[in-house]
Design a binder for these strands. Structure first.
Lengths: 178, 178
DNA sequence: ATTCTCCTATCTATCAATAGGTAGATAGAT
DNA sequence: ATCTATCTACCTATTGATAGATAGGAGAAT
């Protein structure tokens, strides 16, 4: 039989809540209640909230880049299309914000380890995009700007679409990117 | 003498906290402590937290569009430059996020009146930009996309710059806009 | 085979801190 | 005498976190 893997379920539930309302939107008690255990048992798997938040951002980042694949792999144009689609999927399939987008908005109030993990996500994004743009024949200076622009447009597009309750606004906002 | 105008001070303090850590980052007690009154007195000016949040978003929006001015006023190119500068000022002068950007990221967890006021901010943004772009000779369809794109890029650029602790990333991300 | 030991994962029970909110009193100004 | 703005004192709910007990399984020692 498939083992419950409580730690994974904790992360799943916490991620969903965090991507809806930020770092304060998930609590040990709510997570425990949804699984059907006690809040003390959640502390067994993640000793503190900041440890849970850090694991959350780390797993989200890893999953994200597993989908994107090697920046030196497929054709640059194809990779960029895949990049935009990854954000779109997070919004439309999950119906949620980007976890690190939410954390990024409130970064100054996050515990240092969570803030670090959030920063790492954006650093990896910048790095991945810089590589792809350079392969596409762009000068390093321009690649840097293009990378920052793409991240910004996609994170902002998610906020705008969710705020207005209109997923079509996401597509409108990022139409010029791909 | 200048009267204290407690309500205004409450809004100032709450706005700063909210633009740092979102809706849960400001509390009646913290606001009261910073002013030097009791939390019950804050309830006198704003009966509930959602009323305070709503007033917060409303005032932020009004101030923002007072800076921008009439979309039918100055030259379109000049207006767009002013628009980008307004976001840049919010980030660099205040050192804070856009209030409605933070609220937008956690909109699904906000009390309905606060969510409405946040949506109204973005609606006004879309409207203002649509008008300016149309005046600039853009077709309505393209103006809609361009408007959504600008809002998204600017909100996202603020998140990225704050998350990475590097204001230059804001300029890099929005370089192509103006 | 039985017993002892250890680890895993959960439980009960509780703590101190903080949250938003309310009732009712009070001082001062109009 | 009324209104404004504050106070004191309290309530209930929720938060993250901890101490200590418990049940069950795995492996080793007898």
């Amino acid at each position: 039989m498939t083992k419950p893997d409580t730690a994974e379920r904790i992360l799943d539930i916490a991620e969903k809540a965090a991507r809806t309302g930020g770092y304060n939107a998930f609590s040990f008690r709510e997570i425990a209640a949804e699984i059907g255990i006690k809040s003390a048992s959640v502390h067994y798997h993640f000793p503190t909230k900041e440890a849970l938040g850090e694991a959350l951002a780390g797993r989200y980042s890893d999953n994200f880049f597993k989908v994107l694949g090697d920046p030196q792999g497929a054709e640059p144009a194809e990779l960029l299309k895949r990049y935009v689609a990854a954000y779109g999927a997070a919004l439309k399939q999950d119906g949620l914000m980007c976890l690190c987008g939410v954390f990024g908005a409130e970064i100054a109030d996050l515990p240092p380890p969570v803030a670090r993990a959030t920063r790492a996500f954006f650093e990896r994004n910048l790095d991945w995009l810089r590589q792809v743009h350079c392969r596409h024949g762009m000068a390093p200076e321009q690649a840097e700007k293009a990378a920052a622009h793409m991240i910004a447009a996609l994170e902002g597009a998610m906020i705008l679409a969710r705020a207005m309750g209109d997923a079509a606004l996401f597509d409108a906002a990022v139409a010029r990117l791909s």
